[in-house]
Design a protein around this nucleic acid. Structure first.
Lengths: 163, 163
DNA sequence: ACCTATCGGTTGACATGTCAATGATGCTAA
DNA sequence: TTAGCATCATTGACATGTCAACCGATAGGT
């Protein structure tokens, strides 16, 4: 970081000690943030962040229903993961699955009344937690910077996707 | 973010749409970054990041050994998680456990030759991946900002620890 | 000495995640 | 027509994580 010369920067293959320290702080803190949010959500509503993502997507979908594959793409999950998760959510009565009327071998995922109710109850505390643990922790400048950092990292991930 | 008046900022209980968008970008991208690193490490060395954390700590420990509880504290894991993980690593021959000579009911965790070898082989590609996916993705300013953001979030998490 | 609380560590039950294999169904080309 | 192939979704095997219960040993207070 205190590295000013582009030449040396380009020549290095490994991170410096400073860079590594930042990396560790960054990845560990964001992981801890995620799990704190997870446990807040759990104690406020008995939902996991996975449940929440599914319920959010269904709530916003037309007819509060979506085909399984679309849902997976929408929230960025593998189909297998979604299928397992839906099985658990179905057992708890949060969603229902039925054959899709339009797509031959498709499965339609429907929000149940219980699911809508659980989602409704979870939303406010969850958003408040996001505000307390993330938004309020940062200055406005830092918040902007966080968005830019996320965008830069995402771009990099996408560029290197197939390697 | 475009919120300039402290009064309005203080009065809000929930994040704005902008803030929420940044939150989602941030948390999802950092999660994706973590899992990309995980799969890189896996394919380069057949180690998980958990394995790596354990092996790193043991490598740096005197005598390449540590008591189980110390190790857990050092890498920030619950004892139960560590115990399960050590069981799996022991089955793969990466570490060994024996009664601790100094602490009565303590277990000493030792790095095996195979563990040291696996760690040695994993280090270089892992650090290179951190550089490619994180350090090189950011400008020097962004890297500094990432460190500051992590520190701010960590402070907040610590302040709210027992709630 | 003896009851009890605590400590270090393990275990079991379960939630979650990945990967590869499986079924079931439609599409396409010989 | 039919053999091969892609697609949608599920399943099973397994790795990982949390939580609570447990075991054995030790330290104190009475």
């Amino acid at each position: 970081m205190t590295e000013a010369t582009p030449v040396r920067r380009a020549g290095r293959q490994l991170p410096t000690a400073d860079e590594l320290r930042i990396w560790r702080d960054f990845i560990e803190t964001t992981a801890a943030l995620g799990s704190r949010l997870e446990s807040r959500l759990q104690s406020d509503s008995s939902l996991s962040t996975g449940d929440y993502a599914v319920l959010l997507a269904l709530s916003e979908a037309e007819g509060q229903a979506m085909r399984s594959s679309e849902l997976a793409a929408h929230i960025g999950w593998e189909r297998s993961r979604l299928s397992h998760h839906l099985g658990r959510m179905e057992r708890r009565g949060l969603i229902r699955r039925q054959e899709c009327p339009t797509v031959p071998r498709g499965a339609e995922v429907l929000l149940t009344a219980a699911g809508a109710e659980a989602f409704g109850g979870a939303t406010f505390p969850h958003l408040r937690a996001i505000r307390e643990l993330f938004v309020d922790a940062l200055t406005p400048d830092q918040l902007v910077a966080a968005g830019e950092i996320a965008a830069a990292l995402r771009t990099r991930l996408d560029v290197l996707r197939r390697e």
